[in-house]
Design a protein around this nucleic acid. Structure first.
Length: 511
RNA sequence: GUCCUCAUAGCUCAAUGGAUAGAGCGCUGGCCUCCGGAGCCAGUGGUGCAGGUUCGAGUCCUGCUGAGGACACCA
């Protein structure tokens, strides 16, 4: 809708003034009694604005075009609104004509322990972002990068061995229930490498169970060791060594990071071992082979890596702007006012699976998605569990169930939906408009990589609907009006269901 | 110390640089002979501080204050 208005105005300006003037379209505030507004008039003289107004009035789209100081306000014709409404609720998908392929990598937690709620935040962000991008016609790959080699894997194996002998884990090692389980399972005679492999396999399969609980989907799991098996790391190192920002010092190979990081970073240690950093660079090179644009979703504690990984991507001849890193802030678990400790040393760790089992995936996903990524998130277990008006998840799902129930009723009374909007009132017009915004919201989420806009939109739509529903009977003696109202709420239900689907939250017909 | 993110109602949070800053919770008072009261309506109450850019700033820039995080030849 907004895009369409933009086109009309841009064309009119080009015709009348022979110029291109940048401008925006936004929703008009209620007091204007209009639907949309443009700030174009702030860039025109009053005379020009009047010419524009008169010209737009002659088009068949508006009931009214009004010039109000720095804005031009529009009230669109009902017919026109209906056309966009039908468009918004149609099942047609945009053509898959986007040439660029997007690889979105998220969670990528080390296979040294189970997931906690923070991982799930990154997980649902990535999962939903991927779904939204797909919905908009992008070709998307969802990938989990598995760090299955290096120091922490050695520590993992050592921890398992220590546990199996009833000893304490090594310093910086791992000690948890799952380590104990693995220790119980290992047969004597296995060497450290075999134990590591066994442990990784076991933990990864447990992580996949967590992902299933949260309904987070991946297209592939990419293992770090594959980068070594395929010599990708050697290849990348060879390219990097030719660059003047790569140098040797103290027996190690370094990347000079002037301007993008606080100090230079080691690529190959003096003992000849590549660092995780070199692995990461190689992994990005590998990803760029399979996709044109990369999205990484990292915890905010990784923000320091952004600069250096972008610099290395550039050194490999790729455009660093094609790599988008989304950082999400940490999650704090609460039970009412009490903060639940998540620290590994604290002992009582609440795992992701515990949270998911306690509150259910619908509530968990909803709360994790409801805040923008770069804000810290308080996750209240008590509130998420509450099956009452306090809990916004149910508020939205209730709209869906209510509408389903109205359609049941309509069916029993033999009242059919009519694809018309002629008898609808101002309040109903507002609902039509809100439904028409859906596409714009999806695009906003994609553009800003921020699914929380969709959550807010749903809350807004739900509020509008409940308000309307309490004041109006959908099904009445007037069959014509009932038919049109059914059409209206049919659209609302469609958008709610589609949105909840994108968020990975169920849309029950009965609650 | 250096760097990153955040700061909006009593609480948890919204607001592509736009007009009179929105929800929920809490609190006060109303609404079910009715298509689902897991709902609705009314009232209550807010942009941390100081400058700057702009026709217009919660939003952008600088400084300050406060909270969290990052600063390994770990990943």
């Amino acid at each position: 809708m907004i895009d369409f208005l933009k086109k009309i105005i841009a064309r009119t300006i080009a015709d009348k003034f022979g110029a291109e003037i940048p401008f925006d379209i936004m929703k008009a505030p209620a007091f204007t009694n209009c639907d949309y507004a443009s700030n174009i008039a702030s860039k025109l003289s009053e005379g020009e604005a009047e010419i524009l107004r008169a010209e737009l009035s002659r088009t068949p789209y508006f009931d009214e075009v009004r010039f109000q100081k720095p804005f031009v306000n529009f009230r669109v014709k009902m017919d026109f609104l209906k056309k966009f409404f039908l468009d918004a609720i149609s099942d047609k998908k945009p053509e898959n004509d986007k040439k660029e392929k997007i690889l979105i990598e998220f969670i990528s937690a080390n296979p040294t322990g189970l997931l906690h709620i923070g991982h799930i935040r990154g997980g649902v962000l990535g999962d939903v972002l991927a779904k939204i991008l797909k919905e908009l016609g992008w070709n998307v790959i969802r990938e989990y990068y598995v760090n299955d080699r290096g120091r922490q894997i050695k520590l993992l194996a050592e921890s398992v061995i220590a546990r199996s002998r009833g000893k304490k884990p090594p310093e910086d090692g791992y000690d948890s229930e799952i380590i104990g389980k693995i220790a119980d399972e290992i047969k004597p005679g296995l060497d450290e490498k075999e134990i590591a492999k066994l442990a990784i396999g076991k933990i990864l399969s447990e992580i996949k169970k967590d992902l299933e609980l949260a309904k987070i989907n991946f297209d592939s799991f990419f293992s770090e060791s594959r980068l070594y098996e395929t010599k990708k790391v050697d290849e990348v190192l060879k390219i990097l060594r030719k660059k003047k920002s790569v140098f040797e010092k103290d027996g190690a190979i370094w990347l000079e990071t002037e301007g993008c990081d606080e100090k230079d970073r080691v690529l190959v240690k003096k003992d000849g071992e590549p660092t995780y950093f070199l692995s990461d660079i190689s992994y990005h090179a590998e990803k760029f082979k399979r996709a044109d644009r990369l999205i990484n979703i990292w915890g905010a504690d990784h923000h320091g890596y952004v600069g250096r990984i972008k610099k290395s991507v550039a050194l490999l001849g790729k455009n660093p702007d094609k790599l988008k890193v989304i950082l999400y802030q940490l999650v704090r678990l609460k039970r009412g006012k009490e903060i639940v400790k998540m620290s590994k040393r604290g002992g009582s760790i609440l795992l992701a699976r515990d949270v998911l089992k306690e509150v259910g995936k619908d509530a968990a996903r909803f709360f994790l998605l409801s805040r923008k990524a770069d804000a810290q998130l308080d996750f209240d277990l008590e509130l998420a569990k509450e099956k009452s008006q306090k809990n916004p998840v149910y508020y939205i799902q209730y709209v869906h169930a209510r509408i389903c129930s109205v359609f049941e009723k309509a069916k029993s009374k033999n009242i059919a939906m009519a694809e018309r909007t002629e008898l609808l009132s101002e309040a109903e017009r507002e609902i039509l408009k809100t439904v028409c915004e859906f596409d714009g919201i999806l695009n906003l989420c994609a553009r800003e990589f921020a699914p929380h806009h969709l959550v807010n939109y749903l809350l807004d739509l739900s509020k509008t609907f409940h308000n309307y529903y309490e004041r109006n009977r959908i099904i009445s003696e007037d069959k014509e009006l009932s038919g049109e109202r059914l059409f209206l709420i049919y659209g609302v239900r469609k958008i709610i269901k589609k949105s909840l689907g994108l968020l990975g939250i169920s849309a029950p017909e009965k609650m």
